[in-house]
Nucleic acid binder design. Structure first.
Lengths: 236, 236, 236, 236
DNA sequence: GATGAATGAGAATTCATTCAT
DNA sequence: CATGAATGAATTCTCATTCAT
């Protein structure tokens, strides 16, 4: 990556302490400071939205001057990219941590739990949904390198893989499982977009109920079974 | 009033076109120029996205100076509003024009046709989806008056009403029909968002197929029937 | 004046009705419409201040388009000039109408009444004070022709002449009377400026009381007399 | 804090100037640049008046781009505020520095000197009078915080307090002294406004003479004394 | 590595004025 | 006489980015 090159050049310039040690320490420090900036970015982003999360605002919240940010990120869009990466990581953790508790049919319980974890994550952090859409949609060329894009895509797919696996366990073929997973993903995104833009209120509907209904009908369609509907956990 | 006097005098001077004609023509010209600007706005919007569709850009494309725009629209957001209104109008027309051709079950055919018209409209004009989301979400207070908001909402709901009606014809109660309509809406939005952001490619899925599948399963769930699945018309 | 030239040219162009009649009628109409515009200007000016009284705003209030205004006034500043002229006229009327009612010393009563009329006029129409200051101070060259300037100055002096005359009646020489009149003028202006800018509140003083006090002390200083203090009429 | 760390590290690298010095120098530089901008603002303001002292004009005169100004001032009105604050400071200094030289009655001499200093300050810097009036009158909310407003008001009153104190020394009660001070203030403002707008010339009067006359009459009215009139220092 | 200064482009909007019709 | 369209210059302000120090 362009970034690490820069850093290495810096360490070469003044060689006093053993390079390895220095490199390691620097890298650690570096990582810590990157995190600091990402924290600032995330908080700005949450509170002010994409438009409000200007580089200046992020720098201010991180306790840096704008120029300093460029020591850690090549440009603003790279920060967004890192933010998204980190967001996807948390998403994966949330999905991984989810476990069903359906005695009669454990596999169905896990399916529900995994899908719900995905849904709840974005329901409760609506800005992170925007972030993903913005990045892949409007980003200027330089912001999203092919490699980064690939990495982010992989993370996203990883977050949905538990759902896919569970569908296979429940009797779907590989192809059908992918299709159904994509459909779940689409339904979640659709519900949340409608919710976040206030469109859902027009129809006097509740996003959680819609999602639960969708999962019910999905499970109904599964080859093996006679599942029982479980409600989505209520929002905090 | 001074105004009518003027007009009359004007018509006397030229003694050719009656006042009505003049007024009408002026109004027509005005409308035409508004349209010109809206066209420019739409094209800027399509090519550059919402951020790129600045007043300057719109003016440039319309062959105007920025200031001239303000003779036709009070501010930028009003242009967006008009754009959205016009988009929703076209959407309604598209849905209204759609008619099914399913001999075995006309009602199902119409249901499919109406939903598909909605889907296809936004599939083929992806930016118009963004427009709607932006406007209802981030718009500054002055841009979106409560009345305009109401009108736009009404237009949107009107575009989905045919689907709802058809669901009722097919045996759903009023409440269930609304729920199912909302779910269809969410599914369409979800599929298109995934498609527009390139997410759907990750899963190697085709949006049309996903949509068709969803309609199939919906129809399957309907109380009355034994429908046959019909494919969505292929994209141009 | 440039304006009348234009009008004459117009009447020459299409000579149908006897020129005298036409001229008179046109002039009358013209005057009426000028008044219409001035009314609009005054109302805009009162409600929105100098900055808010843009040509567009004035035109709107007069029921005209901006361009039409230029048939009656060469530019915006000329409107201000006319407004000021008209304001000074009203001032003169107010001062002329004022008459004292002090039985023991009629001359002193009249002096008080005249000065007070002047004071009250500007106290109750603070914007007109601004107008005068703006015009003579910041006006661009073209706005205030020497002739107009002279005319306005004459009007202003005329409004103060009753005070001056009364001072002479009360025993002051011509020179002393002018000096004292100027001082009264300055005191009134000073009090009102402090009042309008809220400065007087800092000192917890009341403008009317200050003015009354000043008049008392002035009268005290007059050669002849043993005046009795009369209070300034309370503000509506 | 990250900030202090940075500074220290910086000072280690150069190992020459201690941090305090660096900070101080930077702060000094900063102050100097603020001053530079204020100078530019003042000159623009003097030559072109408030309307002409646009941010662009100020930036141009300061040798900056408009955007650069915002490193030093949050917005245009803050510049005006700073300008006024600085003006009031000079006013206070001028008044403080003034000392009378009247052997027969030192207190009267001081009174004259203090009032005259106030008068002369604004006579010789007429635009500063406008500035104060504008700021307290028309300023947009954001420009003038209540605290700043309070501070400026305090500065203004401080400049008049010496006059007030002197009046008390000369036998006036606290209330009477405030009234008389306000009256002096009003008279000064009135004379100067008439002078600046050229109105005084109409009456063929001289502002200095008018002011001197007013002070004479004021002193005459004081309880204790038999003062002798002293002329106001002639204008440069 | 970080600062602080500065740039330069761009944002929306407002306005007096002109002019063909 | 009046319109309505349009201009062009002005306004304040924001921002990502660069760079000498």
């Amino acid at each position: 990556m362009a970034r690490s090159t820069t850093i290495r050049r810096g360490s070469v310039r003044k060689a006093a302490t053993p390079p390895d040690t220095r490199l390691a320490r620097e890298s650690t420090l570096n990582q810590a400071r990157r995190m600091l900036i990402l924290d600032a970015a995330r908080s700005a982003f949450f509170e002010l939205g994409l438009d409000g999360a200007s580089l200046r605002e992020i720098a201010k919240r991180a306790g840096y001057t704008p120029g300093a940010i460029y020591s850690y990120f090549a440009n603003l869009e790279e920060i967004y990219g890192a933010l998204l990466g980190e967001s996807l990581q948390r998403l994966n953790q949330a999905v991984a941590a989810a476990s069903g508790c359906d005695a009669s049919s454990p596999a169905v319980g896990v399916l529900r739990a995994k899908a719900e974890a995905f849904y709840v994550f974005y329901r409760d952090n609506p800005k992170e949904l925007d972030l993903g859409f913005y990045l892949f949609d409007g980003m200027k060329p330089r912001g999203l390198t092919p490699e980064l894009n690939q990495a982010l895509n992989d993370q996203l797919m990883a977050a949905l893989r538990p759902v896919q696996r569970q569908l296979e366990i429940l009797g779907l073929g590989a192809g059908a499982a992918v299709i159904e997973t994509t459909a779940v993903f689409a339904q979640i995104v659709g519900i949340l977009v409608l919710n976040n833009t206030g469109r859902i209120r027009l129809f006097k509907q509740n996003p959680d109920a819609l999602f639960a209904r969708y999962m019910d009908s999905l499970i109904h369609r599964l080859p093996v079974l006679e599942s029982t509907a479980v409600r989505v956990s209520e929002r905090g």
